[in-house]
Structures are given as C-alpha cells and as structure tokens.
Design a protein around this nucleic acid. Structure first.
Lengths: 177, 177
DNA sequence: TTGCTCCTCACGTCACGTGAGGTGGC
DNA sequence: TTGCTCCTCACGTCACGTGAGGTGGC
C-alpha cells in the first residue's frame, strides 16, 4: 500500500495528474486510511502502467476508461487505428505550419541556425552517393507504383510545393504505366 | 464598413473567433453603430489577414498582438524561430506516439487498412528502382556526412529501433572517414 | 513543536463553440 | 409581423497546474 506521491514518483506522472484520474474514475485508490489519505495497491499500479502506455500513444483519458474496463480487443485496435489517422493529420498540419514559416523566413535575411533539408539538398546527397538522374527517375516511378501515399508524404517533407508534387506524381505514373 | 459575420466569411474564420479577438484586444472593430453592432473597415480587414497568416504558423494570439503592434523585424524572426523549434519537438513527439502504436499493433493480428512504410518496404522500393546494396551503403555514408540530424530523423521515420539507428550511423561514419 | 505529506475546493490555461435570452433592421 | 443578424453573459472543452486554507503523521 503506497500513498499518492509515491505512486506518482514511481510512474513518472505528477501527483495532480493522479488526483485528476481519481476524479475521473479512471484510477481509484484501493482505499483511504482513516485520515482520508489515498492508498494504492499493486493492482492499481498495474492499471496505471497500462494508462501510461496509452498516454504515450495520445489516447484520451475517457477512451482509456473504456479500454481498461471492457478489454475488448476489437475496440482497442479500432481506437488505435483512429488515433493513427488523427496523428497523420496532426503531423501534416504541423508540417504545413513549418512550411509557412520557412516561406516567410526565406524572404527575410537568411536564417543560419536552422538547418532543414529541402529538395536541392536531397538531390545533392543523392548525387554525392553516386546516383544519376536516371536512377532518381526510376526511383520515383517505383515509389509511386508501390506506395503512392508515402511518395506524396515524402515529397511534401522536402518542402516541395503542392503543384510540383502533383506534377512529379503524374509524371511518375505516366512513366510507370 | 462591414459587419462581423461578413468579415468572418471573407476571412474564413468563425464569428465567435472574431468576438474572441475583440475581447482579447487583438482585433477591435473600427466602431459600433447605434445598436451596438461591430463595424469593421478595410484597415481591420488587412490586420486580420496578417492574423490569419500568423495563425497558419501556429503563433499564439498574445504573441501576434506584440508582432502587430510593435512591428520589430527582429522580434518576428525570433518568434518564428522559436516556433520552428517547438514544431520540431511536437512533430517528433507525435512520431513517437505513432511508433508506440505501431509497436502495439504489430503484436496484434496484422493490421490491413493501415499502410505505412518501414525499413523493409523502403528497401524493396529501392531494389525495385534498381539500386544495389552497395548504392544504399554509399547513400548512408553521404547522408551521414552531409546531414547527420536529417539522417537520424529519416531512419526514425522508417520505424527503425533506436539502437539500430545508432549502429547504422556509426557504421556510416566509420566508412565515411 | 517542526516539517512533511496529505486533503479539498476553486480558479487558470488556450482558442474558441454552444446555447440562453434579448434586441435592432429590413 | 416574420426572419435574419446582431448583442451579451455564462458555461464547456482537455489534462492537468497552482495556490489557498486546513488537517494528520512521525
């Protein structure tokens, strides 16, 4: 039987987080002592481990309750897949934000500390590694054929503007056909 | 002179967002008519365009106030660079979340709808495009030499475990020396 | 007694969204 | 008069953090 701050330290969460979980009904203490202190057993510690796991995945606390109380496997997979999609969108939103900032900073005096890798730099690396233009063309064609979505994502990650990405992909599909 | 909903529609924001900006003092209407309606002039419309621009970059509203009221160029660049760093961290946090979920889904029955590209799939694409193992080795060496941080990021994006990433990078540095 | 841990409200965060209840404009 | 836009509170969101004010344990 351990108290709330001990459990907090062991789990790496804050005491207030555990208080909050109690209020939500997500993690109730095993019992209280006579002066009202929360006491947790190893069973709660295990439950908290699961909670931490889901927390790392960004699962909302209300979803966790469902997962922990009804250990339906289908529900878990479904929730995780939904979360993957949300993450995809969030990441691409943040990338868009980065690109907006880069676009604005480029007009300003050249930034120096910020290294980021764009199309030109990528091509340099490929050349330095001995790849010819023809190799890169083939590579686009195969990438588009095998993983079109990932191809799009990759091109966007190099800060290539949207219309150029579209062109490259269309070009790849024509050649690949 | 236009009313709040008209401005909202033109800017693509919600009416409540504009109400909120007024309360914050970020975007005050030019004046009110006799019945209290907010009236905005083209000057406010321009200011709002700037706001939308910063909004796209994820700049917090209180920061925008500073930027719009004191148009110090240094302040802008500084804020944008801070934001770039925060974005870097947020993106890598979200990637970590994705990896946690992938790790867990892999143990479960094979997911089907979720296509994501890992190391093996990447190697397949490279092979399909006619790249030999030796080409890929050279590529790692050059990538590590020219953009070590980006190399790390790229390997992580393929869901390669941390220790293997370290090994690959060490290997690349040895060969590159 | 001192210092530590614990307790319970209650309010703040960030950028709005959502009613409720009421008034002016055409 | 009807329907539309506008107004101002006030409360909700999400996962806690931060005091305030008070009590128990060693």
């Amino acid at each position: 039987m351990i108290t709330i701050s001990t459990l907090a330290k062991r789990s790496g969460l804050s005491r207030t987080a555990l208080l909050y979980y109690d209020r939500l009904g997500l993690l109730k203490p095993f019992r209280r002592n006579r002066s009202g202190y929360r006491l947790y057993s190893s069973s709660e510690a295990n439950r908290l481990e699961q909670i931490c796991l889901y927390r790392k995945m960004g699962i909302p606390l209300r979803e966790m309750k469902k997962l922990l109380d009804v250990p339906g496997n289908n529900v878990l997979v479904e929730i995780l897949q939904r979360r993957l999609h949300v993450l995809d969108h969030e990441i691409s939103d943040l990338r868009k934000q980065q690109r907006s900032i880069w676009a604005l900073l480029k007009q300003k005096p050249l930034q120096q500390g910020e290294q980021m890798i764009g199309k030109e730099r990528w091509i340099e690396i490929m050349h330095a590694a001995g790849f010819k233009d023809q190799d890169m063309h083939n590579w686009h064609i195969q990438f588009e054929r095998m993983e079109p979505e990932a191809h799009q994502e990759f091109l966007e990650s190099l800060c290539i503007p949207k219309d150029e990405v579209t062109k490259i992909r269309e070009w790849s599909r024509e050649r690949g056909a």
